[in-house]
């Protein structure tokens, strides 16, 4: 663990604390999440005023909810999602943008959340794997991944699903080459690609029909 460490605030449980450290957090702290919306402009001003390396309170638009969270400037979006926001579906693989396990959407395009500072997200909407389903109804790509056994160890799966779902947003009838291009940043050590490709093509077909 690097950085200035986890800041304990009132109300944080020991379990949350351990969860945070276990995920190799570099200095992120949970405040009350989702309470008291702060306007984007006010947030930017607060960020501008930050003078030291101490935690800064920001508001992230995650899966349609405004989540208030105190972050140290060096905390990545991936760390903040997994730590104080408790959205552990997003995985951290290489932590260098090389494996894409941490893929989330920012402004509806897939990005590597391990190479994005949380403080740099601003008011751009973030969608994580937890935000893809509509209530109990899975996103067509999620359902197709299950139907095609496109999951082995599952570590790359959330990121891979985010890339595939993003592809269908812009290209509802992709070719196999389109799917390969959209997923070319991902690393699946289990080698589940063929089933994942079939799942995406199937999801595209079923969405059309």
């Amino acid at each position: 663990m690097v950085g200035a460490g986890i800041i304990m605030t009132d109300g944080i449980t020991r379990r949350q604390f351990l969860k945070g450290t276990g995920a190799a957090m570099s200095g992120v702290a949970a405040l009350e999440a989702g309470l008291g919306a702060v306007a984007g402009a006010a947030q930017a001003a607060a960020v501008d005023a930050a003078a030291g390396t101490s935690p800064v309170e920001i508001v992230l638009d995650v899966n349609g909810a405004r989540r208030r969270v105190a972050v140290e400037p060096q905390a990545t979006l991936a760390e903040v999602l997994r730590g104080p926001l408790n959205l552990t579906g997003t995985k951290i693989g290489c932590d260098r943008g090389a494996c894409s396990a941490c893929t989330v959407w920012i402004d509806r395009v897939p990005v590597a959340s391990c190479m994005m500072l949380a403080i740099d997200v601003g008011d751009r909407p973030v969608v994580t794997i937890e935000g893809l389903a509509r209530g109990e109804q899975l996103h067509p790509v999620q359902a197709a991944f299950i139907a095609h056994d496109a999951i082995q160890c599952g570590f790359c799966t959330p990121g891979l699903v985010m890339s595939c779902a993003a592809l269908l947003e812009t290209n509802p009838a992709p070719s196999l080459d389109d799917v390969k291009a959209a997923t070319s940043g991902h690393l699946c050590r289990c080698g589940t690609y063929p089933h994942a490709f079939a799942a995406v093509l199937d999801a595209a077909k079923s969405a059309k029909g």
Partner: peptide
């Protein structure tokens, strides 16, 4: 990563 101060330049 070590800590740092953060400023957002408006212009």
């Amino acid at each position: 990563m070590k800590g740092f101060a953060w400023t957002s330049a408006p212009d």
